[in-house]
Design a protein around this nucleic acid. Structure first.
Lengths: 209, 209
DNA sequence: AGCACTCTAGACAGACCTGTCTGCTAATCT
DNA sequence: AGATTAGCAGACAGGTCTGTCTAGAGTGCT
């Protein structure tokens, strides 16, 4: 096979992959599965139910995903993409450009999202609870998300001239995880003052709200 | 049935229940199931495997537990009891009786427990991830544990003359949950300074270690 | 001796699981 | 025109799941 042929066939394969990823049936499957996985857990939801609710033939499902695990991985990756988009929107928000204010906005958003009655905790933590093997692709994607979030905190803190960005970022990660757990498992009606107090003690800044 | 007969039959039933709870077979089942549930998740472990590893007949299992859910509930209740015992041991520890020091001890212990390679996060959070219905008995037991821990923090803080025990206890609960998640999912080798810093910022006290 | 209880071994039913395969239609690309 | 691809419907295999049931052995209480 000549280099030119190899290049063109690689391009063709890439185009085919793009087309496949954009397929409506595939999107329907991923959306249905995401909702079900999040609401009920991965092991609790079978393929049959997903394809029935997504109105997709079984062969079509296995055409797009080699196995259920691949779907779970796609679900986790999708959540990762989603959270990155939200974060970017928050950082690009018109404002005074104060990175500390951006941090507070992120946490305020999280408490609001957590107040939704359909909120069922952090999807990454929940999936990790069902996937014990840290080498599993799903777990690797989850680890990527965590590294990304920690780094995001660190960058914002460094921009805000925090005296110890590494340690403070670590604390904020603890708070983030604690927040999702609490919103899921506890009555979070009185969470607001607790979070404001926490941010004040950790960052030395009070949210404006 | 005379009152006396009723009383004696009630006592007999109670004694039988005690005997049943103390049965070696039942204990073996619960121990095996606890280890497996924690290590691999509830839905991922079947009854067949539990009874095989516990070396118990299936009829014996269903003699002690009406259904798998009852076993899961027993598992969660057992974890609750376990954590209470640990906490009581910590509080009864001979020392200066400083409740703030007791708080720090609790968190130091948690980081040490979380460093175990077999650590797989908080069993309550992991089980809750697989049980979406908040009215489920298992979820109720989990809620009891969380209320207990929050109250324990609150009592210790009140004894330490914390200016806002309710809010501080809420923050410590956030830290606790964040801690377990982090020990499970992240490289927690550099966790110690982060936690010390967090406790210092939240409590205004540095751990002595 | 008689009875109740605990336990073992394992068959069994009925449901559900993942994943494969056949056969068909229709669109799209070369 | 021919080939590839996406999609649908649904049967099927082989396994695992929970939970029930039969049949019998041992043990302790009365």
């Amino acid at each position: 096979m000549s280099p030119a042929t190899a290049a063109s066939s690689a391009a063709a394969a890439e185009a085919a992959a793009d087309r496949r990823a954009a397929s409506p049936a595939r999107r329907r499957v991923l959306e249905t599965a995401s909702a079900l996985f999040y609401a009920e857990g991965v092991h609790a939801v079978g393929i049959d139910r997903i394809i029935a609710e997504a109105k997709v033939a079984k062969a079509t499902f296995y055409h797009h995903f080699p196995a259920k695990d691949a779907l779970v991985d796609a679900y986790v990756a999708e959540q990762f993409r989603f959270q990155r988009e939200i974060a970017e929107a928050f950082l690009a928000e018109p404002g005074d450009g104060d990175p500390r204010a951006a941090l507070v906005r992120v946490f305020t958003y999280m408490t609001e999202a957590g107040a939704d009655p359909a909120f069922r905790g952090c999807p990454f933590v929940n999936v990790a609870a069902e996937y014990p093997d840290p080498e599993h692709p799903v777990r690797r994607t989850i680890a990527e998300h965590r590294a990304w979030f920690l780094d995001l905190m660190r960058r914002l803190l460094a921009a805000a001239d925090d005296p110890a960005p590494d340690r403070t970022a670590g604390i904020l990660l603890l708070l983030r995880d604690g927040l999702t757990v609490r919103c899921y498992l506890d009555d979070a009606s009185d969470l607001r003052p607790v979070l404001e107090d926490a941010l004040e003690r950790v960052l030395g800044v009070a949210p404006e709200s």
